[in-house]
């Protein structure tokens, strides 16, 4: 590595020469930098500032829009939820009503059927009663007539039919009351 130091010494303070810029390079550097500076000053920097502002406002606008859309969606969701709940309630109500209606209908039908059955039974009973009464009266009259006939045959003459009938009737009534 000695040659390094030798080389530096031989150059006769070349390092110091390097510290002083030669005029052509200085002028070249100044012009080149001036180009860069004027370009950035007049074009790049305003463009960047404009761009950043635009982006800022665009982002702010989009954020506000998104916020609005979100609020809208939320209110819409709440609406739907309310509607859904309402619909469900309505459905429940309808079902309840239908059930009530069916219940009353059923009760009505059953009671009507019961009533009809009772009516039929009563009628039948009435008819049976009447039939029995008629049969009884018939039998009674027959018995009376038979008794009178028998008595006539025993007595050998016609009896006062009306009086005899009353007698028999009374007798039968007596028997019945016993």
């Amino acid at each position: 590595m000695n040659s390094w130091y030798l080389a530096a010494e031989e150059s006769g303070g070349g390092g110091l020469d390097l510290l002083l810029p030669p005029l052509p390079e200085l002028i070249g550097g100044i012009i080149a930098f001036a180009i860069v500076f004027i370009f950035i000053w007049k074009f790049a920097s305003p463009a960047i500032n404009r761009l950043l502002e635009q982006r800022q406002s665009a982002i702010a606008g989009q954020l506000a829009e998104a916020e609005k859309a979100k609020a809208e969606a939320e209110s819409l969701l709440a609406d739907y939820r309310a509607q859904l709940a309402e619909a469900r309630e309505q459905a429940n109500q309808i079902i309840e009503e239908a059930r009530n209606q069916a219940e009353t209908m059923k009760n009505e039908i059953v009671s009507r059927a019961e009533q009809q059955a009772a009516e039929i039974v009563a009628k039948a009973r009435e008819e049976a009663q009447a039939e029995r009464a008629r049969a009884l009266a018939e039998a009674r009259r027959e018995v009376a007539n038979l008794s009178i006939d028998l008595a006539e045959r025993v007595v050998g003459e016609a009896l006062d039919r009306e009086a005899q009938l009353g007698l028999v009737e009374r007798y039968i009534a007596e028997l019945e009351s016993k």
Binding site: P24, E25, G28, G29, I31, A32, F33, I35, V36, F39, I40, F43, A44, A47, I48, L51
Partner: peptide, 22 residues
């Protein structure tokens, strides 16, 4: 010299790059 040409090349590169981007 070459140094001066490179100075202008550097200026050109800066200008072109920023111009292309912005």
């Amino acid at each position: 010299n070459r140094t001066i040409l490179l100075m202008f090349l550097a200026a050109l590169i800066v200008v072109v790059v920023l111009w292309a981007a912005l």
